[in-house]
Simulated scan of single mutants.
Amino acid sequence: MAKHHRKTNPESEPLTRGFKKKARTRQTLVDAAIRIYAEKGVGALLLNELAERAGVSNGTVYNYFKTREEVLQAVGIELANQLSHRVSAASEGIENGAERVAVGVRMFIRQARLDPVWAAAVVRVFQHDRDIRSIVAQNLRGDLQLGLRQGVFRYQDEMIAMGFVASATTGAITGILDGFDQPDYEAVVAQMLLLGLGVTPAKARRIAQMPLPE
């Protein structure tokens, strides 16, 4: 029986390689922007410096980002996705809303301790970019609502509760960047947050000290 060879489009492979190359270049630019934000702050980024840090030409930068605002948006989405993936993976299988919030907060703080550049970028971008706040809020809202339905949380206003958790967490990360840290820092922060959300003292302490998922 004759073998039938599948016809291939000769342009498909070059297009695929081109797409992958563009994705790598864009990621290189985003990573360079994260380092600049961490070192100097959001307002200090210049597109020509971004090109130099990324090892590309100025023209290449403009192929991906026309303005500093577009860079900020891309970095915000990147950091938000990183946060969401880490927390989602760590919270998988946890069905208690308070435990999920505590895991998320502690994961943020632990990552800040391990990667100060990432932490500095998160704190600075969080203040300026709506995308990162929206993605984080979307995940947090579900955990807060779950805890409220379960009777573990007792708060009056959802928006205030979300702002409370986000502000306290970024504040704790800032504390680490400023050199304020201790072995049980993440557990203490989580416990205080849970108390603020209406969890009973004994339960807040127990949840905050639970081992983090590996």
Score class of each variant (00 low, 15 high):
residue 206 R to S: 03
residue 76 G to W: 05
residue 185 Y to M: 14
residue 40 K to P: 00
residue 133 R to E: 06
residue 188 V to G: 07
residue 203 K to Q: 14
residue 16 T to Y: 03
residue 93 G to K: 06
residue 134 S to E: 13
residue 116 P to S: 04
residue 82 Q to A: 04
residue 179 G to E: 05
residue 59 G to D: 07
residue 179 G to H: 12
residue 41 G to I: 03
residue 139 N to W: 12
residue 16 T to A: 13
residue 47 L to V: 00
residue 174 T to H: 07
residue 65 F to K: 11
residue 138 Q to P: 00
residue 151 G to C: 09
residue 157 D to P: 02
residue 74 A to W: 07
residue 140 L to Y: 05
residue 142 G to N: 09
residue 196 G to Y: 12
residue 72 L to C: 02
residue 184 D to T: 15
residue 150 Q to H: 13
residue 2 A to M: 08
residue 41 G to S: 06
residue 188 V to K: 08
residue 51 A to F: 08
residue 92 E to T: 06
residue 132 I to H: 03
residue 169 T to I: 13
residue 185 Y to T: 06
residue 191 Q to N: 11
residue 120 A to K: 09
residue 10 P to A: 15
residue 37 Y to V: 09
residue 118 W to P: 13
residue 42 V to E: 14
residue 211 P to G: 02
residue 90 A to F: 00
residue 21 K to W: 01
residue 212 L to H: 07
residue 174 T to Q: 11
residue 98 A to Q: 07
residue 21 K to Q: 11
residue 93 G to D: 05
residue 76 G to F: 00
residue 149 R to W: 03
residue 162 M to W: 01
residue 184 D to H: 12
residue 40 K to T: 01
residue 2 A to P: 15
residue 146 L to S: 07
residue 41 G to E: 06
residue 121 A to D: 05
residue 67 T to D: 08
residue 40 K to Q: 10
residue 61 V to M: 12
residue 71 V to F: 08
residue 11 E to W: 11
residue 160 I to T: 08
residue 78 E to F: 14
residue 208 A to I: 03
residue 142 G to H: 09
residue 72 L to G: 00
residue 172 A to T: 13
residue 112 A to G: 07
residue 115 D to S: 02
residue 48 N to A: 02
residue 47 L to E: 03
residue 133 R to D: 01
residue 26 R to C: 04
residue 160 I to K: 13
residue 208 A to Q: 05
residue 72 L to A: 04
residue 190 A to R: 06
residue 45 L to E: 04
residue 53 R to M: 03
residue 100 R to K: 15
residue 21 K to R: 15
residue 197 L to Y: 08
residue 5 H to G: 01
residue 207 I to Q: 14
residue 115 D to P: 12
residue 58 N to W: 03
residue 32 A to K: 10
residue 60 T to F: 01
residue 40 K to I: 00
residue 76 G to R: 08
residue 174 T to A: 14
residue 38 A to Y: 06
residue 182 Q to V: 01
residue 64 Y to P: 15
residue 194 L to H: 02
residue 94 I to M: 08
residue 60 T to P: 03
residue 40 K to S: 12
residue 74 A to K: 06
residue 96 N to Q: 14
residue 201 P to M: 02
residue 50 L to V: 10
residue 164 F to L: 11
residue 107 M to W: 04
residue 13 E to M: 14
residue 34 I to G: 02
residue 72 L to F: 00
residue 154 R to K: 06
residue 208 A to L: 00
residue 68 R to N: 15
residue 1 M to G: 11
residue 153 F to N: 11
residue 70 E to L: 07
residue 159 M to G: 07
residue 210 M to S: 02
residue 172 A to D: 13
residue 213 P to F: 02
residue 9 N to Y: 10
residue 28 T to Y: 05
residue 130 R to A: 12
residue 111 Q to R: 15
residue 44 A to E: 08
residue 108 F to H: 02
residue 40 K to A: 10
residue 67 T to M: 08
residue 77 I to E: 15
residue 90 A to N: 04
residue 196 G to E: 12
residue 114 L to P: 01
residue 23 A to M: 09
residue 137 A to H: 10
residue 168 A to G: 09
residue 20 K to R: 10
residue 155 Y to G: 04
